[in-house]
Design a protein around this nucleic acid. Sequence first.
DNA 1: AATAAAAACGAAAACGTTTGAGATTTTAAT
DNA 2: ATTAAAATCTCAAACGTTTTCGTTTTTATT
Lengths: 330, 330
Amino acid sequence: MAVSLKDIAKKAGVHVSTVSKALSDNAEINIDTKRKIKKIADELNYVPNYRAQALVNQKTKTIGVVVPYLNNFYYSELTQAIKDGIQEDYRVSLYSKDNIEEEFKHIKAFKSGEVDGAVFVWAFLEHIDEFKELGKQIPLVFIGNHQVELTKAGSIVRCDLQEGGYQLTKHIIELGHKKIGYIGNEFQRYQGFLQAMKEFKIPINNDFLFLGPYDLFEAGLNIGKEIIELSEKPTGIVCINDEVAIGAASTLIKEGFKIPEDISIGGNDNTDFSKYYNPPLTSVRISKKKVGLKAAEIIKNKLNDDIPENQLIIYPPQLIKRESTAVFEN
Amino acid sequence: MAVSLKDIAKKAGVHVSTVSKALSDNAEINIDTKRKIKKIADELNYVPNYRAQALVNQKTKTIGVVVPYLNNFYYSELTQAIKDGIQEDYRVSLYSKDNIEEEFKHIKAFKSGEVDGAVFVWAFLEHIDEFKELGKQIPLVFIGNHQVELTKAGSIVRCDLQEGGYQLTKHIIELGHKKIGYIGNEFQRYQGFLQAMKEFKIPINNDFLFLGPYDLFEAGLNIGKEIIELSEKPTGIVCINDEVAIGAASTLIKEGFKIPEDISIGGNDNTDFSKYYNPPLTSVRISKKKVGLKAAEIIKNKLNDDIPENQLIIYPPQLIKRESTAVFEN
DNA sequence: AATAAAAACGAAAACGTTTGAGATTTTAAT
DNA sequence: ATTAAAATCTCAAACGTTTTCGTTTTTATT
């Protein structure tokens, strides 16, 4: 069906290897022969067979990107950034994972050589041994993970989420709030929250803590309902991300609460829409773009045999104060 | 490095072909031999070489998905849906395109056999000839496009955007608005807008028309500023999508306008966050999930040689009335 | 016990490239 | 004109599978 080197060779009256070399501008082929061969290739609309090239070159020219899912601003922006950094030189294969087993499946697939390198977003630490093994075969980059152990398998690129959680909490404390809640379960950010609370000696009320795998609008919406039920309510809330913050805000607003007058709410990730929300959402910016591009850069460098040692790169977060947080007026 | 069939064969004292057959449970291999070979393969941690399989089977087990970009709810939700429909059986390679040339590059790459099938989201009609050619090689699905001509190259799955634009406009008209604006440039939706305006004999004021490639928050924000500058302002605005609607709303709200009391705004796509916005955004639901899953299903069916004819599938839209649109009070 | 049939395995080609070594031709140097 | 060197091309192996066909061994049939 598709035209191959053989077809060109036949038409040009030369050997396949000559054609191959001519098309790759090999110096040992006569310039006239090259011209002739290229012309025929053009006429026949020749495109090299990807599968054959992959086999003989031992490369698929593909980078695998394993990400939980896409319909979430944090992940989609990050994924886009990784892609932007890679697309010129490599194809990007996308793999989502709802659970540990799916990630394991992908690791195994990668061992079969279907990608030249891989980026894991929030990898499961349970796979540390598999990662170490895979890391010997192809370059790996982990995004988000804070476990230094992973540098034995690949490089790590992340933002300082603890510092982000700390800054946001501190900001709310400095606005005069004493009754502060937390929604979500990301370890580092929660540590930052605790750090600030401890530093400023703010007592922690367990009723204000909603620790769980909450990261969607709907989760925020539901927690908002729970907050409304509380007899004593927090006046400031630190949310694991912007979706949860907006989900919670939407419930509170619907029930007549004013933000920030009645309750201050802060998000995380500074996703695109946070500044367009009503009110514009205070959030912690983590450079998804920088992180994604850096991950791409590291992978590409490793594939070019530069910088063989694994790196650990941490970007600082930045608190973006907007109008969803305000001074606590008694 | 990686262990191959040859390694297993050597250890088992049999021929490679025997190993290959044994591992694929071919009936002509003795059950004991199979057991023995499988055990050795297990011990050696064998995984079949993807690249070799791709070459000999003439299949990459990969579907290419070409989408403008990801950091936009419409595209990311759609892409996720396509992936969900495909992932079990095929890998998903993602290709973004900022412009025509990039799409052309992808088409050419697909001709080289790097994917077994492809989904194009909002394909450029300029490539119709290339699509027809590629369509002979691998199954194609186009999402969003309304040009029937494309069915000569592949199947089309889309929502009835004109009907959506019509319904939304009609809804705003029926709320009593006479001064109605439009932001965006999608052909079908704009046709729906015009259709409703004509049907209800509402005069069109060119000052209220903002026709351009606007589909991001920021574009909406900027148009919002332009609207504020107008001496006579529209009281109802139909937006090409939710991002533009929210961008425009954010400016208007910032400048003291009340939504919907002063201006009604309607979006399109019914993206996840529209119902969480303040106020919750009236929007037109188009089933990104249904569309994505259907596209996946069609591709898979074609690869299984079922339903060889190209299809044209159109899903109806659904107007979701929320609180960003209200009766026009003079 | 002889023959046919079935079962189990091996040999080799094929997929379409790339690449290093070898063969041939041309050019340069004496 | 002879030889060396350079240029140009061909050969063949290799990448790691799958698969068809052929060969050998085992089992069944009379």
